[in-house]
């Protein structure tokens, strides 16, 4: 127990900052800069999507119809819910409610895992139906559109795959932060940590909010 006590004696303020507020603002600013670069990272794919969709919109419409709209909608709800619990975790950290912080972080991890589970189910479904680009791509539904439908599925797998990688990193981050906060009696040191992890988590949600309508809902009304 003595080590825990020693850790508590550590001042939460790093020596190169004037005060806690400056430390907090620096962390926040750094995180927003990182998220801006992340937005551009995904931006390349969104840009490619925009160009190909404009050039081959019929193929995109036909290909998009093969996606599971309901699974995508459920996953959107799951991710939005995880964002709520993440926001509540940040709130609990600010109020120094350690128990609630750990509970909310745990629920967030569960929702993140549920999202990945549903996504894995969708991917295996896509695989079985021959929608994975490459030599396995058969697209038996409308073979005349197979060429650029394959481009759609390439973008679909790259975008949802990159998103899933981010979510896996997000889950690992949340678990690490939860471990840190569980080991320490108070969450004072963990407060910034929880908040920045929260920003990353919400960013993953934001990406999905755009991915869902762009990939799944292109032309479901016909």
């Amino acid at each position: 127990m003595s080590t825990t006590h020693e850790l508590l004696q550590e001042p939460p303020l790093a020596e190169h900052f004037d005060d806690l507020e400056q430390q907090h603002l620096s962390a926040q600013l750094g995180m927003w800069i990182f998220l801006a670069t992340e937005a551009l990272f995904f931006g390349g794919l969104f840009c490619a999507y925009t160009v190909y969709r404009r050039m081959h919109w019929i193929e995109f419409v036909v290909a998009s119809r093969e996606l599971n709209v309901a699974a995508g909608a459920i996953n959107t709800a799951v991710l939005l819910t995880s964002s709520l619990t993440m926001a509540l975790a940040v709130r609990a950290a600010k109020l120094r409610e350690r128990r609630w912080l750990l509970i909310y972080l745990a629920i967030t991890i569960v929702f993140g895992a549920v999202f990945l589970g549903i996504k894995a189910f969708e991917w295996s479904e896509d695989y079985e139906r021959g929608l994975v680009p490459g030599s396995l791509f058969t697209f038996p539904f409308r073979p005349e559109f197979a060429g650029f439908a394959e481009i759609f599925f390439l973008l679909y797998f790259l975008m949802t795959g990159l998103h899933a990688i981010h979510l896996i990193i997000g889950i690992a981050l949340v678990a690490t932060v939860a471990g840190f906060c569980a080991r320490h009696q108070y969450v004072a040191q963990g407060e910034n940590l929880v908040e920045m992890t929260g920003l990353y988590w919400h960013f993953i949600d934001v990406i999905w909010v755009f991915l869902y309508p762009l990939l799944y809902l292109i032309d479901v009304h016909r």
Binding site: Q28, L29, W32, A36, L40, G44, F46, M86, A87, F203
Partner: peptide, 28 residues
């Protein structure tokens, strides 16, 4: 605004988040 707390944040955070959107808008 709410989950990422931009609402109560420093103006600098607003500027940098807006820049993210601006670069993306330029690209696309």
């Amino acid at each position: 605004l709410y989950f990422m707390h931009l609402k109560g944040s420093n103006r600098l955070a607003w500027v940098f988040s807006a820049m993210g959107v601006a670069w993306l808008a330029l690209l696309i």
